[in-house]
Write a protein that binds this DNA or RNA. Structure first.
Lengths: 97, 97
DNA sequence: CAGGTCGTGAAAATCCTGTGAACAGCAGGC
DNA sequence: GCCTGCTGTTCACAGGATTTTCACGACCTG
């Protein structure tokens, strides 16, 4: 999928062949998002996939990690916006900006 | 691969032709790491390769030996950092610093 | 504009690593 | 046998990195 490669088995995500230095949670989140391109994923789905179980009502973990992921992706791929917010619902991963 | 040569059959590792004095375990670990350059290897993989079987949950053998290996490599090759830590996962061997 | 939702820096809590040191086992030399 | 030096194993602590939580301001929607 273009310049971003994700290899969950190797615990790695590459941009143009160079590895992003993601933490475990960041990578899990990226994997979960990228597993369903163009599909809007709710916070509950993402939380279940990365953290397991259900989030507290006021849990913001997903948001915080989306923010961190965007920061690191934005550094490596400034021209694209891969993760889109869907207000009131969740997030969507779009391989092509 | 540059100035470091590893000869598993001869139980030896050389830097600029001069042998490092590694113990058996240290050499095994170096061989295991260097067998997969740039690939992140989990503690489980490394433990299985060097010690065999699975590590106890709180086993730190791999860490201790990585530390010793780094010390000896660092003495012989001060300018490079060959073994990189990947927090929460394991270690990665990178021939070029 | 009001009310809910999001983005994000930063503090707090937790988890993970680096490494010195203590200890046991082993081989060789005397 | 006894001592010595070396290796491997384990523990403990300090420091570092990550994760979690909080707070405040911006943003969006009706």
């Amino acid at each position: 999928m273009g310049r971003l490669e994700i290899r969950p088995e190797e615990h790695a995500a590459l941009v143009d062949g160079r590895p992003l230095s993601l933490t475990v949670r960041e990578l899990q989140l990226l994997v979960s998002l990228a597993a369903h391109p163009q599909r809007i994923m709710t916070r509950e789905e993402l939380f279940a996939a990365v953290w397991g179980g259900e989030p507290r009502d006021d849990d913001r973990s997903v948001d915080v990690y989306v923010s961190r992921l965007r920061a690191k992706l934005g550094e490596a791929l400034p021209e694209r916006r891969l993760i889109h917010t869907h207000n009131g619902i969740g997030y969507r991963f779009s391989p092509d900006g």
